[in-house]
Design a protein around this nucleic acid. Structure first.
Lengths: 138, 138
DNA sequence: TCCAAGTAGTCAAGCTGCTTGACTAAATAG
DNA sequence: CTATTTAGTCAAGCAGCTTGACTACTTGGA
């Protein structure tokens, strides 16, 4: 319960920070997509696997993000079937806003616990976390 | 990310354990309801607040759990408008199964980190977690 | 070189779990 | 004893996901 509560506090905090910075048309789920796309873009299929959804769902989300101006589709350099989804300048701006928002949430945590305990927390969690999908809907 | 990953690993592990014990018709969301009901029952409204959903949604979930035999509705002792939702014997059995499953997930964690670090983790998280709603859909 | 099988992506339809809105019955305040 | 509030349900609608079917391209083998 504590773990879930902390996770939710973190996600809610970042989401609120991102919205406060003017990106009100995004949900946390989009942030998980951005995190994947920030590493040089991805295909719809890669995005789907990262999010733990079908590629149809990833395709729909991509279409939504294209419409809203956060990403564009480019032809894939090696495979004419595939298309590379990459962040637009607006998408990058949103990514930076999310980083700032995350720092704003973690700041008070460091104040409350001390930077050392936060680092220890991170180290412990890194040994527990399974490197699987990211999608946490339940 | 680590926090989310650990939280998801925990929930998925408990869910799998509960299903393996024969309660295959439940989702993790039901577990959050059970956690509230195990404390002497609750009204639909209290359940809704605990889950962070509308009371219509809580009412539907209650109906589903009644149909599946996990809870029953009883007249409220003090308020004839309200109805007290309480766990049936089957509901209690499922709650015990969830406790066992949780222990099964936490066991390997204690092995990996040591009981002391797990206790420290819990203590740190308890200072961070905001005591709000439990529903983590995003 | 060419065909069969596999893969990337999209379109379409459907389902599930939630929402908002409207309502009844009971409690509470004046 | 009436007016307002509160607990719960019924009904309709919506968002985000699913499965199924399809096209376009790639790949592997005779």
């Amino acid at each position: 319960m504590l773990l879930l509560s902390a996770a939710r506090a973190l996600v809610d905090g970042i989401d609120a920070g991102v919205r406060a910075r003017g990106f009100a048309d995004l949900r946390p789920a989009h942030g998980f997509a951005f995190a994947r796309l920030a590493g040089g873009g991805a295909t719809v299929g890669q995005l789907a696997e990262h999010l733990g959804v079908t590629k149809q769902a990833a395709s729909q989300m991509t279409e939504e993000l294209v419409t809203k101006g956060y990403v564009t589709r480019r032809p894939h350099p090696d495979d004419a079937r595939a298309r590379l989804v990459v962040l637009t300048p607006k998408g990058w701006a949103c990514t930076r806003a999310a980083d700032e928002a995350a720092a704003e949430v973690l700041g008070p945590w460091a104040d409350a616990l001390g930077a050392q305990r936060v680092a220890a927390l991170r180290a412990d969690l890194s040994r527990l976390a399974t490197p699987g999908r990211v999608r946490p809907i339940w």
